[in-house]
């Protein structure tokens, strides 16, 4: 039985219909990669799952079912107990979303203490330990820094650390590694897959890196223009699909020693 079943949802911002008839089913301990056009609605879909659409956005048709209950009808209290522990999210631009005037450590401690009742000192220790696992050197320096004192990729890893603090049953990861160098990216990919292997976490990962998408995925979804344009197993998407957009996307993937423009 699927852990998450997105059933034919439409999502609109105000009057404009942005995502049309999108369906994705995800079993426990499976990884689904979502790739596709910039602006095609990838972020919109996974934010809809977590009930965090920005102002004006709403699901106007279909249903989102998590463990047999509709996520569209949850109360605020029910969301609070689900988010962070059961379902957690790594945001596309964690860096820009952080409160720029607060120490990283303060934000992290607050995040932890909304999800479990532990002392500030223990929460601080737990946060620092998570940062270390994201291969951030000197976790204590990071905890004592403001966001502007960190590099883009370091801020992104703080967001990843938060999303992975509790071994969630469902992890929604929006472009988690696009701000990271390839060796750090490899490490984070490995840790997401260990989360799946050890705790049975199901993952939806949105990424523009087709190599990462293919490496991680049991199932790949290709989006274009608010719709699911194509989907299937890795081998099908990479080699066999005859969908024109999928082919165009695969062909545009840059490779070492490949095409040159200068």
């Amino acid at each position: 039985m699927a852990l998450l079943d997105i059933k034919g949802i439409d999502v609109s911002y105000g009057k404009s219909l942005t995502v049309k008839n999108c369906s994705i089913a995800l079993d426990p301990a499976k990884i689904c990669s979502v790739v596709g056009e910039s602006g095609s609605g990838k972020t919109t879909v996974i934010r809809a799952v977590l009930g965090l659409l920005p102002g004006g956005g709403s699901v106007t048709a279909g249903d989102i079912v998590y463990e047999n209950r509709s996520l569209l009808k949850l109360s605020k209290g029910e969301w609070r107990s689900l988010r962070g522990r059961d379902i957690s999210m790594i945001f596309q631009d964690s860096g820009a979303m952080m409160n720029q005037t607060r120490l990283i450590g303060k934000s992290f401690v607050e995040y932890i203490r909304t999800h479990e009742s532990i002392s500030k000192q223990d929460a601080w220790k737990k946060g620092a330990e998570m940062l270390g696992r994201m291969r951030l050197p000197d976790p204590d320096r990071i905890m004592n820094s403001y966001p502007f004192q960190l590099s883009g990729g370091m801020r992104q890893r703080v967001g990843i650390a938060m999303g992975m603090t509790y071994q969630p049953r469902l992890l929604l990861a929006d472009e988690p590694t696009s701000a990271l160098d390839v060796t750090t990216q490899a490490q984070i990919v490995r840790q997401m897959m260990e989360l799946r292997d050890e705790y049975g976490t199901s993952i939806i990962i949105v990424t523009h890196d087709i190599g990462v998408a293919a490496y991680m995925a049991d199932h790949v979804v290709v989006m274009k223009d608010g719709r699911i344009e194509d989907q299937g197993e890795r081998g099908y998407i990479l080699n066999d699909s005859t969908n024109a957009y999928t082919r165009k996307l695969i062909k545009a993937v840059p490779s070492l020693g490949g095409k040159r423009y200068v």
């Binding site: 790739v35 596709g36 056009e37 910039s38 596309q92 472009e175 696009s178 701000a179 523009h208 087709i210 165009k248 996307l249 545009a252 993937v253 840059p254």
Partner: peptide, 9 residues
């Protein structure tokens, strides 16, 4: 970095 590979191209 935030663009799909086809737009990147």
């Amino acid at each position: 970095s935030a663009l799909d590979v086809s737009v990147q191209e």
